[in-house]
Design a protein around this nucleic acid. Sequence first.
DNA 1: ATCGTTTATCGCCGATGGACGATGACCGAA
DNA 2: TTCGGTCATCGTCCATCGGCGATAAACGAT
Lengths: 115, 115
Amino acid sequence: MTESLVEASGSCRAPEGPAVDSRAIAARLAALSHPARIEILKHLSASNSCCCREVVDRLDLAQSTVSQHLKILVEAGLVRFEPDRQRSRYAVDRAALADVSASLSALVNSCCPGR
Amino acid sequence: MTESLVEASGSCRAPEGPAVDSRAIAARLAALSHPARIEILKHLSASNSCCCREVVDRLDLAQSTVSQHLKILVEAGLVRFEPDRQRSRYAVDRAALADVSASLSALVNSCCPGR
DNA sequence: ATCGTTTATCGCCGATGGACGATGACCGAA
DNA sequence: TTCGGTCATCGTCCATCGGCGATAAACGAT
């Protein structure tokens, strides 16, 4: 859980071998496979504030729960974290998000080789 | 778990409202968020046989475990099932898979509105 | 009818996930 | 300093996941 995402990014292998790296993809999709975290991503991307409290207000989950979800998103590399005074600023890492989407697209395409 | 996927498919809402339907996306991504299931998808798409046994041979997991994963993929709508004699034919539903990918892309795009 | 193969399902169990409240740290304001 | 607000972490609880072996059903072949 500590070194999950630092490997597969630009590995353009031939369709042989480990190809898409199932574990890396699965790990990042797991971070996205919870409704609350999807909601959090949407709120983060729609707002500029992005502190934990604001997300708590909109989501009616306990503060500790939201903090936990944010931590998961940060550890997955999808959200960046920056301490700001007593706040915590969270911001969507759009590049990382795009990368996950691209990875999934690559997987789907590898499942539809000829056509 | 029985009625998870029959709702969100072509809902092209405006960027207001429930937009992307977090629950539906999360549910389908959850089906993809396991290395074994990614592997299974790749094997299914690369082969024509697609019976449970064949997957078991390549994956060194118990037959019951593979059957369970296949069930999850079928229930998520990503794999189609067709009983054939005493076999079970499994095939990737490429359209559904593409749809998931598109949904994720839509989510990512909704996180990058202006640029 | 009997055997072998394939498959789905059923417990069972350990591990993980997700939720919460409580707590303590940190910081700004009064 | 003291108070109020924000946040991360800890511990607990319960549900679900993921793995397995065992079993039974279905079917082809002998």
